[in-house]
Amino acid sequence: MKKVDLHTHSAASDGTYSPSELIRYAHEIGLSAIALTDHDTISGLSEAIEEGDKYPDLEVIPGIEYSTVRNGKDVHVVGLYINYKDDDFKRSLQSFIDSREERNRKMCKKLTDAGMPITYEELVENNPGAVITRAHFGRLLLAKGYTTSIKEAFDRFIGDHCPCYVPREKITPEMAIEQIISGGGIPILAHPVLYGLGRDAMDELVHSMKDAGLVGIEAIYGTYTAQDERDMKSIAAKYNLLISGGSDFHGGNKPHIDLGCGTGRMVVPYEVVEKIKEYRK
């Protein structure tokens, strides 16, 4: 069976593999297609596409993952097949980048006020060229001895609803969907199971995003159980959404998740890509 992975990260955001290393690894393990979907940035795509040109049997799909907020909760939207070279798209993306920087500066102040001095400039200096995410905060907290692990950093300080967490402001899933569509891409609701919503709240989320132009949902994901996958496929069928899937590979930042298989059981068949291509036509 030909397999794909449509949700991955590189060092351009919070992964540990460079874009070219990621593509080489995808080829080594025999994937037929891979999407690079870094957080709120397209800076790694040119390198990934160029590396992919070396492997005729591997399709490299240009993508992005937007971090948005809905009702105080993080909701992520993946865009596949985006026109990342379009100047209008790049300009509109800047507002998302500005929002992330503002959030990160506020989190630095909260951590400093809590007795763990961290500056935004430190984060940028330690991660040149990367979009700063909470994973970078976690690594710096660990490096400075404020925590004993990145997991502790999230559990105690920077995870959702923790004392030093600051949500993104004014960036909604609908805004991400609109931007992805304007950039010629396919908007996909990322890992909905991870949001911890009940059945009714999940249904309402998907319904509202479908109305805004959502095309697909990650019904296959690196950490899903078999029941999670069945539930998400049922929602996809209810709202006539395409199925997408991916590991959410981050390299060493999520060592329990491997490319192409997640925690071990994930399989995303190539027909998922074929159906997305049919929709694009």
Rank of each mutant, 00 (worst) to 15 (best):
N71S: 05
N71A: 10
N71E: 12
D74E: 15
V75H: 06
V75Y: 06
V75D: 09
H76M: 12
H76C: 07
V77M: 09
V77L: 12
V77D: 06
V77T: 10
V78I: 15
G79T: 13
L80M: 01
L80T: 04
L80P: 02
L80A: 09
I82P: 14
I82T: 11
I82Y: 08
N83P: 03
Y84F: 15
K85I: 05
D86L: 11
D86R: 11
D87S: 13
D88Q: 08
F89C: 12
F89H: 12
F89G: 14
F89I: 08
F89V: 09
K90A: 05
K90H: 09
S92H: 12
S92K: 14
L93N: 08
Q94Y: 13
Q94D: 10
S95H: 13
F96G: 04
F96I: 11
I97Y: 13
I97A: 08
D98S: 09
D98K: 14
D98V: 15
D98L: 14
S99W: 14
R100D: 00
E101L: 11
E102G: 03
N104F: 06
K106L: 09
K106A: 10
K106E: 07
K106R: 03
M107C: 10
C108E: 01
K110R: 15
K110H: 08
L111T: 03
L111N: 07
T112H: 06
T112D: 07
T112R: 05
D113W: 05
D113M: 04
D113A: 09
D113V: 08
A114W: 01
A114V: 08
G115F: 04
G115H: 15
M116F: 13
M116Y: 15
M116H: 14
I118E: 01
I118A: 01
T119Y: 00
Y120K: 01
Y120S: 04
Y120R: 02
Y120Q: 04
E121A: 01
E121I: 00
E121C: 00
E122S: 10
E122G: 07
E122Y: 02
L123G: 05
E125C: 10
N127L: 10
N127W: 09
P128N: 02
P128G: 04
P128M: 10
G129C: 13
G129R: 06
A130I: 11
V131G: 03
V131N: 05
V131Q: 10
V131F: 01
I132R: 02
T133K: 09
T133M: 11
T133W: 01
T133P: 04
R134L: 13
A135S: 10
H136I: 02
F137P: 06
F137T: 00
G138F: 12
R139P: 00
L140H: 02
L141I: 03
L141V: 00
L141S: 01
L142N: 14
A143E: 15
K144M: 03
